[in-house]
Simulated scan of single mutants.
Amino acid sequence: MQLLERDIPLTSAEISQLWVTYMNDSAAICHLEHELNIVEDNEIKSILQYVLKVSQSHINSVVEIFNKENHPIPHGFKLSEDVDVTAPRLFTDKYYLNTLNQLGKIGLNNYSLAVSLVAREDIYHFFSTCLNESDKIIKWTNDVLLSKGLYVRPPQLPKAESFDYVTKQSFLTGYFGERRPLTATEIAHLYANFQRNALGSATMMGYSQVAKDKDVVQYFIKGKEIAQKHCAIFESYLKENDLPSPMMLDSEVTDSTIYTFSDKKMTFYSSTLTAVSLGYYGTGMSMSPRRDLGVMYSRLMAEVAKFADNGAKLMIKHGWMEAPPQAADRDELTNN
């Protein structure tokens, strides 16, 4: 007898991916509702409207699935608690467009992982749809960035006359003596990580201006300093090979100090971006044969991991960290 879909319980992987989606999209809705109130560029406004519609549909789908499974709905983030949609502009339209582009790329990574982890047909269909939506967001924002002359293309390389093989062990070195030029893959990751940190620096700067708690303000200031430091490191490797680096985005932050987002929502969003950067750094390290680059990424990952740990401690201290779904504590059940 074939089991009906409703008779197949959700796996831990499916529950976790649905939970993360709910948390991320409920936080994104707070941003999007505020941005739609003040965005001036109609092309960017159209993308914001689409992304808001997508995030709201994700929330509705997760709630429907969890209700059918009698699974508790996360609290997440609420418009009534975590944002003042009438607050003055904190970032420019250019920042919004670049953020939407990066969110599409993050969504592509997250949902491709989810698709690889889930099996139940309705859950697979949901995340497959999410994956296609992220692809659309990336393509749409790329087109608008290009049309406005804001798309920053990675460096171009001279055309190779033929393929070649590596014949010297020096291809892997990088600590002493003459270092070989960067490979195209190494350049791509250095460039992309610079762009993500440039956006992170602007985000932390803006958040530090409107945060209320002193500890939270200092956390964002530290995050801005780390992002700027990492940009300088990535830029130094590019300059060493006479390659250009992207522009910083700190000028896209306004001088507003008016309450815009709750400290809880901003800290959660920053922690999420920090966790994502660890994954990107790990990928950059695995794709960089030159040993000095591997050591560099390892060192930066340790710094980012410490910053993420401080963010988690900050959220626990203020009672902001919502516990994700967990396995049963058998020792506690036995004692009770």
Rank of each mutant, 00 (worst) to 15 (best):
A184E: 10
A184M: 09
T185K: 10
T185A: 14
I187Y: 04
I187A: 07
A188I: 12
A188G: 12
A188W: 09
H189V: 05
H189M: 07
H189K: 04
H189S: 05
L190T: 00
L190W: 01
L190H: 00
L190Y: 00
Y191H: 05
Y191C: 03
Y191A: 06
A192M: 13
A192C: 11
F194K: 01
F194W: 03
Q195A: 11
Q195Y: 09
R196K: 13
R196T: 06
A198N: 06
A198E: 03
A198Q: 03
A198S: 09
G200Y: 00
G200W: 00
A202F: 05
A202S: 06
T203Q: 15
T203F: 13
M205F: 15
M205E: 14
M205P: 12
G206F: 02
S208H: 06
S208A: 10
S208Q: 08
Q209H: 14
Q209I: 13
V210P: 05
V210L: 08
A211G: 07
D213S: 13
D213Y: 14
K214S: 11
K214E: 14
D215G: 12
V216W: 02
V217T: 11
Y219L: 11
Y219A: 08
F220Y: 08
F220W: 06
F220Q: 03
I221R: 07
K222W: 13
K222D: 14
K222V: 13
G223Y: 02
G223F: 02
I226P: 08
A227V: 00
A227L: 02
A227N: 04
Q228E: 15
K229P: 09
K229V: 07
C231G: 05
C231K: 02
C231M: 09
C231E: 02
A232Q: 10
A232T: 13
I233S: 05
S236K: 06
Y237I: 04
L238P: 00
L238Y: 00
L238T: 00
K239H: 11
E240S: 07
E240A: 09
N241W: 02
N241G: 04
N241Q: 06
N241D: 06
N241V: 00
D242L: 15
D242H: 14
P244T: 12
S245H: 07
S245Q: 07
P246H: 01
M247I: 14
M247P: 15
M248Q: 14
M248S: 14
L249P: 10
L249G: 08
D250Y: 07
S251P: 11
S251K: 12
E252Y: 09
E252R: 07
V253R: 01
V253H: 01
T254E: 00
D255E: 11
D255V: 13
D255H: 12
S256W: 02
S256N: 06
T257K: 14
T257I: 13
T257R: 12
I258M: 12
Y259F: 15
F261S: 01
F261A: 02
F261N: 01
F261P: 00
F261E: 02
F261K: 01
S262A: 04
S262N: 05
S262G: 05
D263P: 06
